[in-house]
């Protein structure tokens, strides 16, 4: 592991804390299935990968607005999929996506 001189860096939110924070801050997430995947599940990656599965249109626009606000100081990388795209790609399984609700309960 590399070193940070002068111990200047402050603690980052854990995956669980991020999940709780997003579920609390973004009410529109109730209308979608939301997951975390990638390196942030296991430590610190360069970003926090989030998958959102649900409808397009107005509900999605509202959610994007909420996530943009909530992610003002988080390196979120959000992937949006329609339910049929999630099914077509099998992404939830292949990328090892964990529901935010499950992470928040841990």
């Amino acid at each position: 592991m590399g070193r940070v001189k002068d111990a200047a860096a402050e603690p980052l939110m854990t995956a669980r804390e991020i999940a709780k924070y997003l579920l609390t801050s973004c009410k529109c997430l109730r209308e979608f299935k939301s997951y975390m995947f990638g390196s942030s599940l296991f430590g610190v990656g360069s970003d926090i990968d989030i998958l959102i599965v649900g409808p397009s249109g107005e509900p999605l626009s509202r959610l994007k607005e909420e996530l943009r606000f909530a992610g003002k100081e988080l390196p979120l990388d959000v992937l949006y999929m329609l339910p049929e795209e999630a099914k077509e790609t099998g992404f939830v399984t292949s990328a090892g996506c964990i529901p935010l609700s499950q992470l928040a309960r841990k």
Partner: peptide, 24 residues
């Protein structure tokens, strides 16, 4: 410290074992 600087330092620390990083 800015949030993105904090993340960058932590990212480098966790992913680049030979590196040393400091806030200027």
């Amino acid at each position: 410290m800015n949030w993105q600087v904090n993340y960058a330092l932590k990212y480098l620390m966790d992913n680049h074992k030979d590196a040393t990083a400091q806030h200027v």
